[in-house]
Lab assay of single mutants.
Amino acid sequence: RPLSCPNHEGKTMEFYCEACETAMCGECRAGEHREHGTVLLRDV
């Protein structure tokens, strides 16, 4: 079952931030994590 983002209601966490070692949604990735290296969560 997909994980919901606690910061963006209705968004699914699909990415993993390698710098912060945390899962995130597309909005997180485009925002606070935009300078960080990210991979698809399913690839982690």
Rank of each mutant, 00 (worst) to 15 (best):
V44I: 09
H8T: 02
G31W: 03
M13T: 12
T38G: 05
R34C: 09
A30K: 04
E35Y: 02
E32Y: 06
E32M: 07
G37L: 06
E21V: 05
G31S: 08
A23M: 08
K11L: 08
V39C: 13
L41H: 06
E27C: 04
G37T: 15
K11Q: 06
P2T: 15
E9D: 14
E9K: 08
T38C: 10
T12M: 08
G37W: 05
H36M: 01
V39E: 13
V44A: 11
E32A: 13
T12L: 09
N7E: 11
D43C: 01
M24A: 13
H8Q: 06
R1D: 11
Y16M: 09
L41A: 08
L3D: 15
E9T: 13
A23G: 07
M24E: 07
C5H: 00
T38M: 04
E21L: 06
P2R: 15
C25F: 02
A30D: 11
T38R: 05
G26Y: 10
E18C: 05
G10H: 09
M13H: 06
V44S: 12
R42N: 15
K11Y: 10
G37Y: 15
F15E: 04
N7K: 15
V44D: 13
L40S: 10
H8G: 02
E14R: 03
E21N: 08
Y16F: 12
S4V: 01
H33L: 01
R34G: 14
C28V: 02
E35H: 09
Y16R: 05
E21I: 01
T38K: 09
E35R: 04
H8N: 02
F15A: 02
E32C: 10
E32G: 04
C25K: 01
C5R: 00
E21A: 08
K11A: 09
G37F: 10
R34D: 10
K11W: 10
H36D: 02
E14D: 10
C28K: 04
M13P: 14
T12A: 07
R42S: 13
G31L: 07
A19P: 11
C25S: 02
P2Q: 13
M24P: 04
M13G: 07
C20S: 01
A23P: 14
F15P: 01
L41T: 06
L40M: 09
V39W: 06
C17I: 00
E9S: 14
G26L: 02
E27N: 10
L41C: 14
L3R: 08
C28W: 01
P6R: 13
L41I: 08
E14K: 04
G37R: 14
P2V: 15
P6F: 09
E35M: 05
C20K: 02
R1L: 00
M13K: 06
M24F: 08
C28T: 02
M24S: 04
F15M: 03
T12Q: 11
R42H: 14
L40E: 13
E27W: 04
G10R: 08
M13R: 11
T22N: 13
R29I: 10
E14W: 02
E35G: 10
S4E: 05
M24W: 01
G31Q: 14
R42L: 05
M24N: 03
E27S: 07
K11M: 10
E35T: 12
C20G: 02
C20F: 00
G31Y: 05
E9F: 12
G10M: 07
K11R: 09
T38L: 03
L41Q: 13
A23Q: 15
A19V: 10
C17F: 01
R1M: 00
M24Q: 04
C28Y: 00
E9A: 05
F15W: 07
T22M: 09
E27R: 08
E21F: 03
E35P: 03
E14Y: 02
P2I: 15
R34F: 08
E18R: 12
M24L: 13
P6A: 12
C5F: 02
C25E: 03
P6V: 10
N7D: 09
G37K: 08
E14I: 04
G31H: 00
C20I: 00
A30V: 11
H8A: 01
K11I: 13
S4G: 06
R29P: 06
E27L: 09
S4P: 10
N7V: 13
G26Q: 10
E21D: 14
P2E: 15
K11V: 08
L3Q: 12
E27M: 07
V39G: 12
L3E: 14
C20L: 00
E14P: 06
V39Y: 11
T38N: 14
D43M: 04
C20Q: 02
C20Y: 00
E18P: 12
N7I: 13
R42C: 06
H33Q: 06
H8V: 03
F15S: 05
R29N: 12
F15V: 02
R34H: 14
P2L: 15
R1G: 05
Y16C: 03
C5A: 00
R42K: 14
N7M: 09
N7L: 06
R29T: 09
H33V: 02
H36Q: 01
L3M: 15
R42E: 13
H33W: 00
P2A: 12
P6L: 06
D43T: 07
C25M: 01
V39N: 15
E21C: 07
A30P: 04
L41V: 06
L3N: 06
V39T: 14
M24K: 03
G37S: 12
C5L: 00
C28A: 03
T22W: 01
L41S: 04
A23E: 15
E18Y: 08
C17M: 00
E18V: 10
A30W: 06
E21S: 09
M24V: 13
H33F: 03
P6M: 07
M13D: 05
L40P: 14
V44L: 05
T22F: 03
E9W: 06
A19N: 12
E14N: 01
Y16N: 05
E9L: 10
H8R: 05
V39M: 15
A23H: 14
V44C: 10
N7R: 14
T38V: 07
G10C: 04
L41F: 05
G10L: 07
L40G: 09
C20T: 04
L40F: 07
E27T: 08
E14S: 07
T38I: 14
A23V: 05
V39Q: 10
R34W: 07
R29D: 10
E32I: 02
S4Q: 03
C25H: 02
G31A: 08
R29L: 10
E32D: 14
R34A: 12
D43P: 12
H33K: 04
R1V: 14
P2C: 04
A19R: 12
Y16I: 11
E14V: 07
G10N: 12
G10K: 10
C25L: 01
P6S: 12
T38W: 14
H8I: 15
G31M: 12
L3K: 08
E14A: 05
V44N: 02
E14G: 05
V39I: 02
L3A: 15
E18W: 03
R42G: 11
H36K: 07
C5S: 00
P6W: 02
G31R: 09
E35L: 06
C5M: 02
C5Q: 00
H33A: 05
G26R: 08
C28G: 03
L3V: 14
C28R: 04
P2H: 13
E32S: 14
E9N: 07
C5E: 00
R1S: 06
R34Q: 15
L40D: 05
C20R: 01
T12S: 10
E14Q: 09
R42D: 12
E32L: 11
K11C: 08
V39D: 15
E35K: 14
C28Q: 03
P6N: 04
C25G: 02
C17A: 01
H8M: 06
E9V: 08
G26S: 12
M24R: 04
E21T: 10
M24T: 06
T38H: 05
T22S: 10
T22D: 07
H36C: 11
R1Q: 10
L40V: 07
V44T: 11
E9M: 08
H36R: 02
Y16A: 03
R34V: 11
T38P: 11
L40W: 04
M13S: 13
H33M: 01
T12E: 13
V39H: 05
H36V: 02
E18G: 05
C5N: 01
C25W: 01
G37M: 03
F15Q: 02
H33C: 06
V44E: 10
T12P: 15
M13I: 08
C17P: 02
P2W: 05
K11P: 04
K11T: 07
D43N: 11
L40A: 12
G10F: 15
H33G: 03
A19K: 11
L3W: 00
R34K: 11
P6C: 07
H36G: 04
R34I: 15
N7Y: 08
G10D: 12
G26V: 11
C17Q: 01
G37H: 05
H8Y: 02
E27V: 07
R1P: 00
H8L: 03
E21R: 04
L40T: 11
D43R: 04
P2G: 15
H8F: 01
L41W: 08
P2K: 15
C5D: 00
E32W: 04
